[in-house]
Design a protein around this nucleic acid. Structure first.
Length: 831
RNA sequence: GGGCGAGUGGCGGAACGGCAGACGCGCCGGCUUUAGGAGCCGGUGUCGCAAGACGUGCGAGUUCGAAUCUCGCCUCGCCCACCA
C-alpha cells in the first residue's frame, strides 16, 4: 500500500473531515446511554441477530471485522425499521490453542485467555458494532460451564449421552481424540494442527446425534444456504435399502446380516465380504484358513493404525473357509474378509455383487470369483470387462428366478418383501453419520460431570454440586491421558449414590459442546438459577439471523441443530430449529491468497487502518470490496475511494445554502427521484446481504447530491431531504459519521433510533423514459418518450429512426417486439 | 472418482432472459499548488481518424433477443472420498 499521511483533508467548505475527532466520542456516548442494550420488555417485534462468537486467539484481525460488520448493518437497519433488536457478543474461550499457547509461554491457560478476551473486547468496541455487551458470555467462566455440565447431565439422564468403547480418531500431536467431523481431507488430518490421525480403540463419551439423523435432513423450516444444506445432507448420508440374512454353517453363528441398497441384485451375489473386525470372523474361520485370516486381520489392524488410506488402493482380502447360502439362488457362496468393507457402516458385512458394483468387481476380478449379471438395460447386452453400476428406471432383471423380467425399480420392494416373508430380511435405512464423540483428553475445557463408582458405575454429579470446577494447579502438558488424572484431589471423590470411594471422570468436553447453547444463554446471561430463563428464551428464540463461516457446516452448525432438537424432546425448549436464517461470509485471505496466519506473516491488523482512516471507512471498504459471502484476498488499494466518498458526504451534508439559483424544478425533481430510488434499492440490498451494491447506490446518491449542490440547489427542501435520507441509509454502514453529521444538522440524537426512510414510488418515477431500440437484438438507437406513450406510437417512432431504416433497407419488419417500458426490438426479414 | 460453485475491462466487481462493464480503484488530461501530496473537473472495454465493427473461458443449441437458460469441453476453488 502506498503510504499516505492521516492528515485530515480540507473539503473546501470550511469544515474539517477528521473521523478521529468524533468516532471515539460517539462510541462512548452510545455505551454510556446503553443505546445498544436489548430490552426484554420492549413491546415491539423482537429480532435476534447473531454472529458466531469468536475464539479469543489474541488480536482481532480484519476477518473479524468483515464477519461482524455484515450482520451489524442488518441489525442496525432492523432497529431503525422499528424492531427490538438483540445483537450480542461473547467468547468461545475453552479450547486447545489456549493450552498450547500457555505451554509455550509457561503461563496458565486461564491467564492467556483472560488477557486475550480483555484485549479483544477493546478491539471489538473500536469497530462500532451495536453489540449488547451487557449480555456477554465467556464459555470458560464457571458461571457458564456450570450449565454446560448441567446440560450434559440432562443428556445423560435422557440416554443421549453414553460411554462406549470404539475405534476412534486420535491426533498424535495434540494427544487427543477427535470427532469424525474434526478429521479432514484425503489424508485424514486433525482439523486443528493438520497432523494425520490414527485409529485407537478407546472408551469415550458420545452424544447420540444419530437419533436425529432423519429430522436433521429436513430443512423445510429454515432459510439456510444451499451449500450448507447439501453438506449436512451428504454428511448424514441416508441410504435406503434392506438388511438381509445369509445363513451360514458355523459354530455359534446362524447367519450373517448384510446391508444393501440394491436388493434387486441379490441373484448376482456370488460371495460375501466381511470387515476384518467383524465379530463373527473368528468363529467362522476354518482351521486350515486360520493362519492366513489372522495374519490379514492383524495387518488390517496395523494398517488402520497408520491410517486406512482409501481411494484407488488395490483391493485385498482372504477367504475364511466358510460358506453362506444365498437364500434366493440357494447357492453356497464363499465368505471373505477384506478391508474395503468398513466395520462401522451398515452391518459391517456385504453381499458382493461384482456385476453391479465397482469395488466388488475389482475384488472378484483379482481373486477370480464368479461375476453374474442379473440386471440389464432392456434388450441390453452384458458389458465386457466392467460392472454395470448405473441404476436407471428401465433396467430389467435377468437370471433372477421368478423376478426375471421385472424392472429393477419394481424388484427392489418385491424382493425385499419376499425376504421379509421368509424371515430373512427387512427394509432398512443406514446413515453415514456417527454419534458425536465429545470426550477430550485435555485440560482447558469443561470437565465431564461424571463419577465412576465400583458399585454403581457411571453416576452424574448431582446438579446442586455443579459446577465441577476445573482445578488451576494442574500440570497440563499433554501426555495422552487427561492432565486432570494427575490431580488426586480432583480424581478421588465419593459416589453420589452410596458415598463410597469413587473416581471422577478426568476428560473434558469438546468445545463444540460449549458453543451448542451459547445463543440460549444470551437470552438471560445472568441467571444464576438456571441455564436460561424460559420466558426470556420464549421471547428471543429462535435466532432470526445467524452469520458465520461456512467451515462449520458439519460441525457447529450440525451440533446446534442436534442440541435444540434433543432439548426440545427433553421438554426444555419448544422450538425445532435454533437459527431461522443463516448467511455465510466469505474468508478474507492474505494478500498472498493464503489463509491469514501468524506463521505466514500475512495477517492484516485493522488497528493500523482505523487509526489512519477511522472505523467507518474500514467498515465501508470491507463491505464494498465484493459480495459478502465471497470474501477474497486482501487488497487495500481501494480504501482511498471509500474514504473520499465519506469526505464527499461530509462536504454535502454541510453545504452552505447558496440560494442564488433556487428555482430549477426539473433538477429538483431529479434529485427527489434519485433519493427515492436509492431508498427503494438500498433496503433490499442490505436485507439480502448485498452490501457492495448497497454502498454503490449510496455513492450514486451522493454523486447526485454533489451535482445538485454545484448547480445551486443546496438551499432547497429536496436537497435537505436528500442529505437526511443519505445519512439515514448510511447510518448502518458508517454509524459514527452519520451520527456526527446528523447532530451537526441539528437533528435529534440518535440517528440510530430514527425511523428508516420510506420509499415513495410516485417520486421515484420519471415522466419520460429512454427506450433502447434494437434491430435483430442489437442496439441501434435510443428513443426518449413520455411514460404514457402508446405502443403503436412507440413502434412508429422506432421504425422512423434512421438507424433502424438503414438496417431495414426499405423492407417491412417481420416483427416488432415491445417490452413495455423496457425496449423495442425490430426483427428484419433476414432473420 | 463423486458433489457443489465460479470464470465479465489493467484490477475489485455490476447487470428480474432485454442498453454488458453500475460503483470504486488504477491510468490519462485539465484546474489548483513554488513543488510534491491532497482536493476538484473531464476522459477511460478492444480495434478504428471516423462511420462503424467486435466483445462476458471454449464449442454447439434454445430464443425476436443469452454474461444469464440447455448440452459438451477447458480452467480454478470448496466439500466428500472403498459408505455397500
Amino acid at each position: 500500500m502506498t503510504t499516505r499521511t492521516g492528515t485530515p483533508e480540507r473539503t473546501g467548505r470550511g469544515e474539517r473531515f477528521d473521523p478521529s475527532s468524533y468516532e471515539q466520542r460517539w462510541r462512548e456516548r452510545w455505551e454510556a446511554d446503553g443505546l445498544d442494550e436489548a430490552n426484554d420488555n420492549d413491546p415491539r417485534p423482537k429480532r435476534y441477530v447473531l454472529t458466531m462468537y469468536p475464539y479469543p486467539s489474541g488480536d482481532l484481525h480484519i476477518g473479524h471485522w468483515y464477519a461482524a460488520t455484515g450482520p451489524d448493518i442488518v441489525a442496525r437497519m432492523r432497529r431503525m425499521q422499528g424492531q427490538n433488536v438483540m445483537f450480542p457478543m461473547g467468547f468461545d474461550s475453552f479450547g486447545l490453542p489456549a493450552e498450547n499457547a500457555a505451554i509455550d509461554r509457561g503461563a496458565h491457560p486461564w491467564e492467556w485467555t483472560e488477557q486475550n478476551v480483555e484485549r479483544m473486547r477493546t478491539q471489538f468496541r473500536s469497530m462500532g458494532c451495536m453489540f449488547d455487551w451487557s449480555r456477554e458470555v465467556v464459555s470458560s467462566d464457571p458461571a457458564y460451564y456450570r450449565w454446560t455440565q448441567w446440560l450434559f447431565v440432562q443428556f445423560f439422564k435422557a440416554g443421549l449421552a453414553y460411554r462406549a468403547m470404539a475405534p476412534v480418531d486420535w491426533c498424535p500431536k495434540d494427544q487427543v481424540v477427535l470427532a469424525r467431523e474434526q478429521v479432514e481431507g484425503v489424508n485424514r488430518v486433525c482439523w486443528r494442527c493438520g497432523t494425520p490421525v490414527v485409529k485407537r480403540d478407546l472408551e469415550q463419551w458420545f452424544f447420540r446425534t444419530t437419533n436425529y439423523a432423519d429430522e436433521m435432513l429436513d430443512f423445510s423450516k429454515i432459510d439456510w444456504p444451499e451449500p450448507i444444506r447439501l453438506m449436512q445432507t451428504n454428511w448424514i448420508g441416508r441410504s435406503e435399502g434392506a438388511e438381509i440374512d445369509f445363513p451360514v454353517e458355523a459354530d455359534g453363528v446362524d447367519a450373517i446380516r448384510v446391508f444393501t441398497t440394491r436388493p434387486d441384485t441379490i441373484f448376482g451375489a456370488t460371495f460375501m465380504v466381511l470387515a476384518p473386525e467383524h465379530p463373527a470372523v473368528a468363529a467362522m474361520t476354518t482351521p486350515e484358513r486360520k493362519a492366513d485370516v489372522e495374519a490379514y486381520v492383524a495387518a488390517a489392524r496395523r494398517e488402520t493404525e497408520i491410517n486406512r488410506l482409501s481411494a484407488e488402493r488395490e483391493k485385498s482380502g482372504v477367504f475364511i473357509g466358510s460358506y453362506a447360502v444365498n437364500a434366493m439362488t440357494q447357492e453356497r457362496i464363499p465368505i471373505w474378509i477384506a478391508d474395503y468393507v468398513l466395520p462401522g457402516y451398515g452391518t459391517g458385512a456385504i453381499m458382493a455383487v461384482p456385476a453391479h458394483d465397482e469395488r466388488d468387481y475389482a475384488f472378484a476380478a483379482k481373486y477370480e470369483l464368479p461375476i453374474r449379471y442379473v440386471v440389464l438395460p432392456p434388450g441390453g447386452t452384458v458389458p465386457e470387462g466392467e460392472p454395470l453400476v448405473a441404476h436407471t428406471a428401465d433396467e430389467v432383471l435377468v437370471d433372477s428366478g421368478e423376478f426375471s423380467g421385472m424392472s429393477a425399480t419394481e424388484a427392489i420392494p418385491a424382493i425385499t418383501r419376499q425376504l421379509t416373508d421368509l424371515g430373512l430380511g427387512e427394509p432398512a435405512v443406514t446413515y453415514r453419520l456417527r454419534d458425536w464423540l465429545i470426550s477430550r483428553q485435555r485440560y482447558w475445557g469443561a470437565p465431564i460431570p461424571i463419577v465412576y463408582c465400583p458399585e454403581h458405575g457411571a453416576q452424574p454429579v448431582p446438579e446442586d454440586q455443579l459446577p465441577v470446577l476445573l482445578p488451576e494447579d494442574v500440570d497440563f502438558v499433554p501426555t495422552g491421558v487427561s492432565p486432570l488424572q494427575s490431580h488426586p484431589e480432583f480424581v478421588h471423590v465419593s459416589c453420589p449414590q452410596c458415598g463410597g470411594d469413587a473416581r471422577r471422570e478426568t476428560d473434558t468436553m469438546d468445545t463444540f459442546v460449549d458453543s451448542s447453547w451459547y445463543f440460549l444463554r444470551y437470552c438471560s446471561p445472568h441467571d444464576a438459577e438456571r441455564p436460561w430463563d424460559p420466558e426470556a428464551v420464549a421471547r428471543w428464540m429462535p435466532v432470526d439471523m445467524y452469520t458465520g463461516g461456512a467451515e462449520h457446516a458439519v460441525l457447529h452448525l450440525m451440533y446446534v441443530r442436534f442440541f435444540v432438537k434433543a432439548l426440545r424432546d427433553m421438554g426444555h425448549l419448544t422450538f425445532d430449529e435454533p437459527f431461522m436464517a443463516l448467511r455465510n461470509q466469505g474468508d478474507i485471505l492474505g494478500a498472498d491468497h493464503h489463509r491469514m496466519s501468524k506463521t505466514r506473516g500475512n495477517v492484516v491488523n485493522p488497528d493500523d487502518l482505523t487509526s489512519r482512516y477511522g472505523s467507518d471507512t474500514v467498515r465501508l471498504f470491507l463491505m464494498f470490496i465484493g459480495p459478502w459471502n465471497q470474501g477474497g484476498p486482501w487488497n487495500p488499494t481501494g480504501i482511498e475511494g471509500v474514504h473520499r466518498f465519506l469526505g464527499r458526504v461530509w462536504s454535502v451534508a454541510q453545504a452552505a445554502p447558496a440560494g442564488e439559483r433556487g428555482d430549477q424544478p426539473e433538477l429538483t425533481r431529479a434529485l427527489r427521484r434519485a433519493t427515492h430510488l436509492t431508498i427503494a434499492g438500498v433496503g433490499d440490498d442490505y436485507a439480502a446481504f448485498h452490501f457492495n451494491t448497497g454502498v454503490a447506490k449510496l455513492m450514486e446518491l451522493t454523486n447526485a447530491i454533489v451535482k445538485a449542490r454545484d448547480v445551486g440547489l443546496a438551499g432547497t427542501d429536496a436537497y435537505a431531504d436528500a442529505v437526511d435520507t443519505l445519512l439515514l441509509l448510511l447510518a448502518p454502514f458508517a454509524p459514527h459519521i452519520a451520527e456526527e453529521l446528523w447532530a451537526r444538522r441539528g437533528k435529534p440524537y440518535s440517528i440510530h433510533q430514527q425511523a428508516w426512510p420510506i420509499h415513495d414510488a410516485e417520486l421515484a418515477t420519471a415522466d419520460t423514459i429512454e427506450l433502447p431500440i434494437q434491430v435483430d437484438g442489437k442496439l441501434r438507437d435510443r428513443l426518449v418518450v413520455t411514460r404514457d406513450t402508446p405502443a403503436d406510437e412507440i413502434e412508429r417512432l422506432a421504425l422512423a429512426s434512421e438507424h433502424v431504416q438503414r438496417y431495414l433497407a426499405g423492407r417491412s419488419p417481420r416483427r416488432v417486439i415491445q417490452v413495455p417500458g423496457k425496449l423495442v426490438n425490430v426483427v428484419t426479414p433476414d432473420l
